[in-house]
Design a protein around this nucleic acid. Structure first.
Lengths: 174, 174
DNA sequence: ACCTGAACACCGTTCAAGT
DNA sequence: ACCTGAACACCGTTCAAGT
């Protein structure tokens, strides 16, 4: 991966976190990284390719983070709730997969497919960590919804209220 | 409210449910209702005005629906979970406030403010119905997240898996 | 009161052209 | 291998003009 490709992905990720697929333009990305918009197309032929790659990278990083933390703490729900808490309190406040997942109906095919893969990865990993399928579905919905509601209320503390149950410090059942 | 105003709101609502704020254009709305895009501006001066009004109308309808159902069933969580289930299984699949709330960072002020009002209304009503503030936060996150995840996975049944706990048929505690 | 066409600066994408 | 400028049909918005 060239430095320029990485810089473009970083800029696109930041803007997708704020405004989703319709919330960024090649001309803005181009200014962010210091080239012309037509040059962005050299690295990523279409907006679809760029957004799909942003989602893929985010999914890979999330998967790695969760695996690392789960090795240190056997309480899966606490691990997930803490990981997404990092996103809720970050400068961007949102997970790109969540904002894109909410508008999945209107997304180019490759982007919608990568977003779907992200949420499937979350559920599969939760089940592998010991949750039942139904429990994983409900829990994933809670932490994703907490991100959305906290963002809408413009109050990161709302994420903590919604997920307090799962971030308790006694190391008990997952 | 003129018929044309209502027709424009209906068309905008449908398109916002699919693609959020960036996912609809005045030219598309104009075609939907059979006038020119410059005429849409006569009814709603800006995209901001139009989207804010869509959110306000959705919030009012939701509030009314919940009140009506809660009068018939004292189990507040079941009432809410069933109401949003209607959205998950509708043709549009999504709640406009949820898709806009996810991209709140990038929204015009009036739209962001209306979206915030919607989520505050949900929490306040839940507390008035007997939930604790923390319980309302967690529960609201779960049903909103279930909408997002089901949409991303393109599988409405996912909403049922995530909310099964709350839609049980014995009329017990709220 | 309601609608329109033309104009403005914007958008994604293509492509021939440069180094 | 990487970048550019010009062009295309699109976008929100404005406004003078029509009925």
């Amino acid at each position: 991966m060239s430095d320029m490709k990485t810089a473009i992905l970083d800029a696109a990720e930041k803007r997708i976190q704020a405004g989703g697929f319709g919330g960024f333009s090649f001309r803005e990305i181009a200014e962010d990284v210091g080239i012309k918009s037509s040059s962005v197309h050299y690295h990523f032929p279409t907006k679809e390719d760029l957004a799909a790659e942003v989602v893929r990278r985010w999914a890979d990083r999330t998967s790695g983070n969760i695996d690392r933390e789960f090795a240190k703490d056997p309480n899966a729900k606490r691990v997930w709730a803490k990981a997404l808490r990092g996103t809720a309190f970050s400068k961007a406040h949102m997970c790109p997969c969540t904002i894109l997942g909410a508008s999945s109906q209107d997304l180019p095919k490759a982007v919608a497919a990568e977003v779907k893969r992200f949420f499937k990865m979350c559920q599969d990993k939760m089940v592998a960590q010991g949750m039942s399928a139904d429990d994983a579905s409900e829990f994933l919905s809670t932490i994703i919804g907490a991100l959305v509601v906290a963002n809408a209320l413009r109050d990161s503390a709302e994420y903590d209220r919604a997920t307090a149950t799962f971030r308790v410090e006694e190391k008990t059942a997952a």
